[in-house]
Write a protein that binds this DNA or RNA. Structure first.
Length: 310
DNA sequence: CTCGATCCCTGGACGC
DNA sequence: TGCGTCCAGGGATCGA
């Protein structure tokens, strides 16, 4: 039985999933004007009053992805006389992060509201754009001009656009675990737990390897497989777990291609060894112990004491 | 700079 | 069946 949306563990909004949602919204709501805003729970919104004050009257010019954020580009708005009030004379953006369980989709205004709907944007064509998020791990912020620019500089390069040189330098200059680096949005924007594990499996790199330990060749390979995984996942409309359906009622398909994530105890597709799970950088990490050798097995023959662990 | 711990929050899975 | 417990995760924050 298909439902328009399913919540819970079915959906992890990483780059490919957010890209899928953003493309869907670009088709369905770009060009529409926001008539009014209604708010429910607001603890995930930076400045709720700003949404109510500044969004009505603005047109949604485009919907873009920025890392795991969606960026709704909004027109400037004028008052009834066609003059521009200072504050609203500039173009602005609504930043939306889906967290773990966020959904942003338009529907007929008459349609019953899903549980955990927290924001309603009334559109000029009679529909409503609704934000639903059971866990409220998402984020919403209205930003303009310098504040918006400043916010966007907090993030690293887009993994699909980053050059080989830039990728290698921002990874190999860091001593943190590679898994932590891939998840760090200030290093690269958009990679989450699933695609970090999938790309590390493909690159045959253990999640606990240090950035500084990677050879130039390994960095090159990692970038290539990461981009490949992300592109293929976008083509497949993202990964659905359980029965998640996207804004157009279609499930993503990429979970069929997972080689590591969620496969604890199953056989490695490459070598047949048993996929293991361990916590790295505070997150479940799935890897093949044979294809992705642990960095810790290199203590034999080295009796010169390394610096104490603390 | 980097680490781990803690918290946020709800629903799903699992054990009894 | 129902209840309790654990777990999932992105990110902010704090202390070490």
């Amino acid at each position: 039985m298909l439902r328009p949306y399913a919540f819970g563990a079915g959906f992890m909004p990483e780059l490919p999933e957010v890209e899928t949602v953003a493309r869907g919204l670009q088709k369905s709501i770009a060009g529409r004007r926001i008539v009014s805003v209604r708010l429910g729970k607001t603890d995930f919104i930076d400045d709720p009053a700003a949404l109510e004050q500044h969004l009505p009257g603005r047109q949604i010019e485009s919907v873009e992805r920025y890392g795991k954020f969606m960026l709704l580009r909004l027109s400037a708005r004028g008052n009834a006389a066609g003059e521009l009030e200072n504050e609203d004379a500039d173009a602005a953006s609504l930043l939306v992060h889906l967290g773990m369980t966020g959904q942003l989709a338009p529907c007929a205004a008459a349609q019953p509201c899903a549980k955990h709907t927290h924001v309603w944007f009334e559109l000029d064509d009679g529909r409503e754009l609704r934000y639903t998020d059971p866990r409220r791990f998402g984020r919403m912020a209205y930003l303009t001009g310098a504040l918006l620019a400043e916010e966007l500089t907090l993030f690293g390069a887009d993994p699909l656009l980053v050059s080989a040189e830039e990728f290698a330098s921002c990874i190999r200059s860091r001593n943190a675990q590679i898994k932590a680096l891939l998840l760090d949005q200030s290093v690269l924007r958009g990679v989450g737990n699933i695609y970090a594990d999938e790309s590390l499996w493909r690159a045959k790199i253990h999640p606990m390897r240090r950035g500084t330990e990677l050879s130039k060749k390994q960095a090159q390979v990692l970038r290539r497989v990461l981009q490949d995984v992300l592109r293929k996942a976008i083509t497949a409309r993202g990964s659905s777990i359980s029965d998640f359906l996207d804004a157009e009622g279609q499930p993503g398909e990429y979970q069929r291609h997972h080689r590591a994530y969620g496969r604890e105890g199953k056989r490695c597709y490459r070598c047949g060894a048993t996929i293991q799970r361990m916590i790295v950088a505070g997150r479940s990490s799935y890897f093949c112990p044979k294809c992705q050798p642990s960095p810790r097995v290199r203590k034999k023959g080295k009796r010169r004491g390394r610096v104490r662990n603390g």
